[in-house]
Nucleic acid binder design. Structure first.
Ligand SMILES: [Mn+2]
Ligand SMILES: [Mn+2]
Ligand SMILES: [Zn+2]
Ligand SMILES: [Zn+2]
Lengths: 152, 152
DNA sequence: CCTTTAAATGAAAATGATTATCATTACCAT
DNA sequence: ATGGTAATGATAATCATTTTCATTTAAAGG
């Protein structure tokens, strides 16, 4: 049985000539274990117990590098800080539902078939009409989660 | 012939008990005249010649107020500062195409019929499934504009 | 394993956007 | 016209992110 080789972030860094360092290992492992969409400070806090010696600066630098190499995906949900998540087959393209009150984020990838088809169709139309080379799209829904709706 | 009364921002402010002040007039008029999606500093710069006495603080405050009252719409295109535009019948709901290199923004509202229909359908599905009260959505496309594509 | 060396790191300062303070000013209802 | 109150502006404070620079470390050879 043939299986697609999983290229993890270490290989990806090596490919590009970057070093595999202790801070980088720790930071990426936080992303792997934490899940969700942590921001830089949240990564820092989660690291403080195990590796209190890693500076926030390094976290920012590592994150920026990983985003550049496609290891992490960067999101901006409008709550004042960038959020990130590991980019892989599982977390790949998906959309979000964001609570405007408590910032809870739900992600979904069970797109309707029509959904995927139509987005492509729109994208093609726009590329021609506006002479753009479209690389990606964001479709996020904003509103109130159950709890925040109830609490008036 | 009956016509829908156009409620401009002055009426809107009055309704809510806010004062119609000189700075507010100037700031809103910049939005009216400038068009596009200016950020706070751009408004400030455009104001500096006519009204050098208006502080950046007041611009932020006026913008925040107007966003809260629905007079302005706030956007975050990921270039580090919030951008705004007047919300009215003409500028109402639309989507964006953003150049990741030069931050050029194209907005379009000539949605395909299917587009509008499908978004509603998706929204209904999500509201039930995730128990969310969805108020709005963002569908933005990111890529490279003609110029930025050409300049390799 | 030991050296070498450029890349990586961390502390601290800098930056840039946005917000808070607070004394002063200006709407606007009376 | 005038007073009460909201609005304003200068300034300082926050907060996320970036830059600087001296020090440390990964990894390539020997
Ligand atoms: Mn996500
Ligand atoms: Mn727009
Ligand atoms: Zn909520
Ligand atoms: Zn461009």
């Amino acid at each position: 049985m043939r299986r697609k080789r999983i290229r993890n972030w270490e290989n990806r860094l090596r490919e590009e000539g970057y070093k595999i360092t202790t801070p980088r290992k720790s930071i990426l492992s936080v992303f792997e274990q934490l899940g969700g969409h942590p921001n830089a400070r949240e990564v820092f806090n989660n690291l403080s117990s195990q590796s209190p010696d890693i500076g926030l600066t390094t976290i920012y630098r590592t994150i920026e590098l990983c985003v550049r190499l496609g290891i992490l995906k960067k999101y901006d949900f409008g709550d004042g800080h960038s959020r990130y998540e590991i980019a892989n087959e599982k977390t790949d393209h998906h959309h979000h539902i964001i609570c405007e009150k408590c910032s809870k984020i739900i992600e979904y990838r069970d797109f309707l078939d029509e959904e995927t088809t139509l987005i492509k169709k729109i994208q093609n139309k726009l590329e021609k009409k506006y002479d753009f080379n479209i690389k990606q799209h964001v479709l996020d829904f904003y509103g109130l989660c159950k709890e925040c709706s109830d609490n008036k």
